[in-house]
């Protein structure tokens, strides 16, 4: 069953086209990632999907319900966690949870099994006001509140933005366990490396989808060879390669360069010789598989989507 069906969706804010004719489907039980930088249209897409914002054009169905007409019924069955913390800061942890359960006509007891693993991590602060929690705790409480009415699908807008690498990993573990309990999870993130945690991802940039597929498939569709080059003076070597082979042929990745030149087949040895000729001394050059970030940059430049 399709959990979400989006056809030719467009949305503008005055002069800015936030979403340009987007079509997308999400299957039941998927952990689906919407991946792109700030301003790509992630929040707009999610807000339309959860019936908080009206589309200008196109059809949008969530759980088979039209987000424009059937929003009242729809809202009973979805959980939404917005990017900005939006619980009641002057209510305690426990009061917030009770409030959300009551609003949805249920009780904490009835669905406690869904939130137990997460809630136990913040239970010791249950009498603390939500506004006084640390960032990580707030996030866990918000997730509990989004789950307490046993939704079929949860939509999480950038839950890991500004969160450190450790907490990010913990959060993804929580999402995976929710998926195991049969909940469809739609999550957006600006972190490219989080794509690998998802069953399928949509790469989004400037209101357009660059690609929609399982992350491994997107990676395997990278055009041409990709080389990892290690050398001293990486920064000037990168500039030199871009000068010679065109802008965006070389990018820094930590302490290496990723180089691709789709117009020309080249062997590791030939590349090594060329780099030596420029006066650099690579310590290693090898062909590697592209990651999501390589693909994203490649698709971005192909679409001239660079700012």
């Amino acid at each position: 069953m399709k959990i979400a069906q989006i056809h030719n969706l467009s949305k503008s804010y005055s002069d800015t086209q936030a979403l340009k004719n987007i079509s997308l489907e999400v299957e039941q039980g998927e952990l689906f990632g919407l991946i792109g930088p700030d301003g790509a249209g992630k929040t707009t897409l999610f807000r339309i999907l959860v019936s908080l914002l009206l589309p200008d054009k196109g059809e949008v169905f969530l759980l088979g319900k039209d987000v424009k007409k059937d929003f009242k019924e729809l809202r009973q069955h979805i959980g939404y966690m917005p990017g900005r913390f939006s619980l009641y800061e002057d209510l305690t942890v426990e009061e917030n949870l009770y409030f959300y359960a009551t609003v949805f006509g249920t009780t904490i007891q009835e669905n406690y099994h869904l939130i137990k693993d997460i809630y136990q991590q913040i239970e010791m602060f249950k009498t603390r006001r939500a506004g006084k929690l640390s960032g990580g705790m707030k996030q866990k409480l918000a997730l509990c509140c989004a789950l307490i009415h046993n939704p079929e699908v949860i939509v999480l807008d950038e839950p890991t933005t500004g969160v450190d690498a450790v907490s990010r990993k913990e959060f993804w573990d929580m999402l995976k366990s929710l998926k195991k309990q049969g909940i469809t999870v739609l999550v957006s993130t600006p972190y490219m490396d989080e794509a690998s945690m998802c069953d399928r991802v949509a790469l989004i940039q400037k209101g357009e989808l660059l690609s929609v597929a399982p992350p491994a498939q997107i990676e395997s569709e990278f055009e041409g060879d990709l080389f990892e080059i290690k050398a001293d003076n990486l920064h000037s070597l990168k500039n030199k390669l871009n000068e010679k082979y065109g802008e965006h042929s070389a990018h820094l990745f930590g302490q290496s360069i990723h180089f691709s030149n789709p117009n020309q087949e080249i062997s590791e040895q030939e590349l090594s010789d060329l780099i030596e000729q420029e006066g650099f001394h690579p310590s290693s050059i090898k062909k590697i598989k592209a990651g999501i970030e390589d693909c994203f940059m490649h698709l971005m430049t192909a679409k001239k989507g660079i700012e």
Partner: peptide, 10 residues
């Protein structure tokens, strides 16, 4: 560079 696209980040 939080939230910035990967090319602009570089």
């Amino acid at each position: 560079t939080g939230g910035v696209d990967p090319i602009t980040r570089r």
